Simulated assay, not measured.
Amino acid sequence: MEAALVERRLPDAYVAHLNNHKISTLTPEFQFSSFLAKLFLQENNSLTMLPPLFQHMPALVVLDLSHTSIQSLPPSISKLCSLEEFTLRECSLLIELPPEIGALKSLKLFDLEGTEIMYLPKEIGKLGSLERLRVSLSAYADDHKDRNGTQHIIPRMKILKLTKLKELSISVSPEAEWWEVELLEAIMGDLLFLPDLRTLKLYLPTAKALQQFLKLERYKVPIYSSLWNYRLMTGHCEQLPFSVQLDSEENFLKLEKCVKYMNGEGYTDEIV
């Protein structure tokens, strides 16, 4: 593909639409302008790695790598000092974020849903401009926990530093044994320090975890009363056919202020 076909000039910015182009590698023929503002690479399923190209993109504001097969992010990601939206949805081979992610001080949206991230690096706490954080944590984080301890999966006292956060979504595989009440309590304690939080998606596997959430108060008011939208999942997921799961999840995501009760045992006061 010729470089001339890669970029399209808009009134105030450069945009590169390379989504669904069957790209497997970004070779030198892709001569991106240093004024490039938006780069769309989603739906390139054969794209497995990124060369160190970000060091020449100081003006990049939007980067979408969704539905690619990338397995890591290059250290040059730290050069994207203007980046505001970074989307990595359904990058199922991505299991780790580099510490250089902490250099993205302008980031407002960080979407990691559908990845297999085993842990969040402590540098996540440096993203002070972040407004929307969506992350999927892998069941295989058990291996990381065994080596480093549960507190390193979501570093303690880091989420609370994201004081501009308006949306927080933490998806966890129901098979994840490490998603313990102790870890949940640490995360929920951080919610008290997020005054602008309006949307919350969280998996609470036990009635005890749900009870802990219901007890959270800010200024003597239950914290959930200040949320515009929440989706809480409690119980244990049944092994349903994939098509049924997909249908159920799509319907669930259309709802606001709801609790999904999955395969639990009886009712509890918390569920009611």
Rank of each mutant, 00 (worst) to 15 (best):
L65P: 00
S66K: 02
S66D: 00
H67Q: 13
I70S: 03
I70F: 01
Q71R: 12
L73W: 02
P74I: 02
K79Y: 15
C81F: 11
S82Q: 09
E84M: 10
F86S: 08
F86N: 06
R89N: 08
L93H: 13
L94P: 01
L97E: 08
P98S: 04
P99D: 05
E100R: 04
G102L: 04
L109H: 10
D111T: 04
E113D: 11
T115E: 00
I117S: 05
Y119K: 09
K122D: 12
G125F: 03
K126D: 14
K126G: 06
L133D: 05
R134W: 06
V135R: 03
S136M: 07
S136N: 09
L137Q: 01
L137G: 01
L137I: 09
Y140F: 15
Y140P: 10
A141M: 07
A141C: 07
D142W: 11
K145S: 12
D146T: 13
R147Q: 11
R147A: 13
N148I: 11
G149N: 09
P155V: 06
R156K: 07
R156S: 06
R156D: 10
R156E: 11
R156A: 09
K158I: 03
I159Y: 02
I159N: 05
I159V: 12
I159A: 04
K161W: 11
L162R: 05
T163Y: 03
T163C: 06
L165I: 00
K166W: 00
K166Y: 00
S169E: 14
S171V: 14
S171I: 12
S173K: 11
P174T: 11
E175I: 07
A176G: 14
W178T: 11
W178L: 14
W179E: 10
V181A: 14
E185Q: 15
A186S: 15
I187F: 09
G189I: 10
F193Q: 13
F193P: 09
P195W: 06
D196R: 13
T199Q: 14
K201P: 13
